[in-house]
Design a protein around this nucleic acid. Structure first.
Length: 262
DNA sequence: GAGTATGTTATATG
DNA sequence: GCATATAACATACT
């Protein structure tokens, strides 16, 4: 969704000025080098792998953008207000700008020469929306840790966040702590499909979860919220170090976990 | 003041 | 070295 916004907002435009308002969001690049690399360049394309965005420039140089937890990009008229969390602005030759804002500053902006090199360096797995069913099953089942931790591991596959891992596991009726390597491959195939559906659905509604169909966990994702299937109430646990919301009746814990408790 | 938050990564542990 | 778990990061809000 953000990629599309960038495509429509900056494609073909030439950068005339780069303003770094807070260099805390810069990753392995100085404000001066960033400005130098981008000056005079024209935006050729915008790509995405997982949560990572790549703004490719004519004549080389690729701007890398990761939104972290609270990052956002907008295309505005130059000088338009962009709030107290504005961190970076790229001004174009047509009096518009790409404005990056980020409350918590967990985002990262940098420069690379090639997407392939960047991906190899960060060891990013295949994009969650592009990965084939077979590759998904092979990669996920290669790990013994809890299935949710595997889904969130950007090295296994890229693009699944905490909320979407919860959603896909709820849809597939799989407990988040179930060891990934112990899940039947036909259940993983179902999970693959449901994960891609959940991600696509979220993009389709621009992450406005209220617009999702009623069966979605994301609409009621809070401790004590109603199970979308009407099977009681949702509970909260910690999985992979993250808040995890699940329905204990739909997502039964596997036998191996029951034994741990006893 | 305490607790929590949609992500990644460095560090600790076994 | 490998797999996994946890802390740390910066900031606002309940």
């Amino acid at each position: 969704m953000v990629r599309r916004r960038l495509v429509s907002g900056c494609m073909g435009k030439r950068i005339v000025k780069t303003s770094v308002l807070d260099d805390g969001i810069l990753d392995r690049v100085s404000a001066s080098r960033l400005a130098k690399v981008l000056k005079g360049r024209r935006v050729r394309s915008v790509e995405r792998i997982g949560k990572q965005l790549f703004v490719e420039m004519d004549g080389g140089g690729i701007l890398t953008i990761h939104l972290g937890l609270t990052g956002d990009v907008e295309c505005l008229e130059t000088g338009a207000k962009n709030g107290r969390w504005a961190r970076l602005s790229l001004q174009f030759d047509d009096a518009t700008e790409l404005a990056y804002s980020d409350l918590r500053k967990f985002g990262a902006i940098g420069i690379t020469d090639s997407i392939e090199a960047f991906v190899a360096d960060r060891k990013l797995g295949p994009d969650a929306l592009m990965i084939t069913e077979d590759d998904f099953v092979a990669r996920v089942s290669a790990h013994r840790k809890g299935i949710k931790a595997v889904l969130l591991d950007q090295h296994v596959l890229a693009g699944v966040g905490n909320l979407y891992a919860d959603e896909a596991l709820f849809q597939a009726r799989i407990h988040p702590l179930a060891p990934a390597s112990g899940i039947q491959s036909r259940r993983l195939r179902v999970l693959h499909r449901l994960l891609q559906e959940a991600l696509s659905a979220s993009i389709a509604v621009e992450t406005d979860f209220e617009r999702l169909p009623s069966g979605y966990l994301l609409r009621a994702r809070r401790k004590g919220g109603p199970c979308p299937r009407g099977n009681g109430y949702l509970v909260s646990i910690v999985a992979a170090g993250r808040t995890t919301i699940l329905c204990p009746r739909c997502q039964r814990s596997p036998r191996s976990l029951e034994e741990k408790v006893h």
